[in-house]
Design a protein around this nucleic acid. Structure first.
Lengths: 149, 149
DNA sequence: CCGTATCCATTCCGATACTG
DNA sequence: CAGTATCGGAATGGATACGG
């Protein structure tokens, strides 16, 4: 009896996170929500996603507490989907994805969308992991301790 | 004629990145590669992934230039799968995933694996996006410029 | 031990029709 | 416009058999 296996019992936070947002569409919906998008039809047209899939993902993201449905601001009978704190916390993840994609998935002069600081209009410097002492970290100077507590 | 649509023509780096590594297993394989794992059987047992799927993902990750197959160090006739520079660059993304998962997907005292700095043995502080001037960034003080160049 | 190939169930996804 | 329902095809995934 095949079928998907849940990773929610895994002790690794990476595995659990991927179980929640590791699919084709969820993070794209979140990305658009960061850009201020909130309406069903805007997600649907903006992403080119099928409506039934969008409906399913919006429900799952609400179940996970990443999005929240609030009454639409335009007075219509419908809803806006807005990020919760848990959803807002995905900002660094989205920026990581964006910066990796920018560096490795585009040809030299290929058109792309850019993330800028509003105040200065300048591009965002590459994020990096640092230790408490400010040392730059990579795989070779870090270590995963298998289990804890 | 249904089926998957490629996002590789998208001008958004987030979309392209998700098209490459936005699935259930690819980043878990990369995570284990960061931990020094390199052999087919180790991935298979360590992840609990079906062998055919693992075989498929290893091929795709090689096609993408994220993993590279090298002769096994133990003198066997087989291969080790090691990260390329493009793959190593996924480190910040994995750390972002891990830190989000740690904060939002575990109960208070639930066992989990932890990422530590080797030298100090201490946990890695939360990564954050900052502007060139050191200002802390979030969705409200950044902006995506639709197209460029 | 390393991987590929095959089988089958489940999931994903796109298209479309439909309700309110 | 917002969302659900249904259909068919494609991709995913687990189990297992098989050859190197």
């Amino acid at each position: 009896m095949p079928g998907k296996i849940t990773l929610q019992a895994e002790p690794c936070p990476v595995a659990r996170a991927l179980d929640v947002i590791g699919d084709r569409w969820s993070l794209l919906i979140v990305r658009n929500a960061f850009d201020g998008m909130g309406r069903f039809g805007d997600f649907q047209k903006g992403l080119g996603i099928a409506k039934n899939i969008l409906s399913d993902r919006l429900h799952k993201l609400q179940l996970q507490g990443i999005l929240e449905a609030v009454p639409a601001t335009d007075g219509s009978a419908y809803q806006d989907y807005v990020l919760t704190a848990k959803g807002e916390a995905l900002f660094t993840l989205i920026v990581s994805l964006r910066q990796w994609g920018e560096e490795y998935l585009f040809d030299k002069n290929e058109p792309r969308s850019l993330l800028l600081e509003k105040q200065s209009g300048k591009a965002i410097p590459k994020m990096e992991a640092r230790s408490a002492n400010g040392r730059k970290l990579n795989a070779s100077n870090t270590l995963v301790r298998k289990i804890d507590r």
